[in-house]
């Protein structure tokens, strides 16, 4: 079993098996991130394919002194934002899947499917009101769980810019939840969380 750095080095040298293993390791994260940013699973698949082909073609130019996941997230969100912008210009925003099962694996429990499905639909609906960079910052910070400094590196902006994007995103999402999905968050819980305090 090769560690990630070894996989990257081997894949850079043209080792196809190493590249395939790298894809298997990272594909779910790339698709999920692209999906949360674009709001469409088919678009996310296209983004992921583009990201991994870029990886395959450009691995020899990847700077191994930099963190691989940062680079991967950056390529992914940039491609996803480009996808949103090109799609928006055409005015062909695609609706999200209605059924929770469309996104969840078969082995998931019924209760988990119901909760996560409802939550996903709520997020997809409300996140459509966010600017692409606000949505990206929120996805990286809250869903992917990156630190603010890491989000800043991925998005190639300052930490204060990330905090501003997060503030705006949370404000919009909170208002949307209270208006459209009051059942998702118990009343009286609109105070700042620990993470939000860290970012404010």
């Amino acid at each position: 079993m090769r560690d990630e750095q070894q996989l990257i080095r081997d894949a850079s040298a043209g080792d196809r098996a190493a590249f395939d293993e790298l894809v298997r390791t990272k594909r779910e994260r790339v698709i999920r991130t692209a999906f949360q940013v674009t709001g469409d699973l088919d678009d996310a698949m296209d983004v992921a394919q583009g990201v991994f082909m870029k990886l395959w073609r450009g691995l020899d130019r990847y700077d191994t002194s930099r963190r691989f996941d940062t680079w991967l997230y950056r390529v992914t969100v940039n491609a996803a934002i480009d996808m949103i912008r090109s799609r928006g210009a055409k005015g062909t925003l695609q609706p999200l899947p209605d059924e929770p099962g469309d996104l969840l694996a078969e082995e998931s429990g019924a209760e988990a499917r119901l909760d996560l499905g409802a939550l996903q639909r709520a997020f997809s609906h409300l996140a459509g009101q966010l600017a692409p960079k606000q949505r990206t910052a929120f996805v990286l910070r809250e869903i992917e769980g990156l630190e603010t400094s890491e989000v800043a590196r991925v998005m190639n902006v300052t930490e204060s810019t990330v905090r501003n994007h997060l503030f705006q995103a949370r404000k919009t999402l909170r208002a949307g939840i209270e208006k459209h999905y009051p059942g998702l968050v118990p009343s009286g819980s609109s105070g700042l969380s620990d993470r939000e305090r860290d970012d404010s």
């Binding site: 996104l103 969840l104 997020f123």
Partner: peptide, 30 residues
Amino acid sequence: MSDDLSKLFSQLRDQPIPQDRLDELTARLD
């Protein structure tokens, strides 16, 4: 259900991508 926004949406991190879509990606790359 989480009592705050961050914890609420962080649950989406656990949402798995269907295996057939993962396999589809690998096939498309191949």
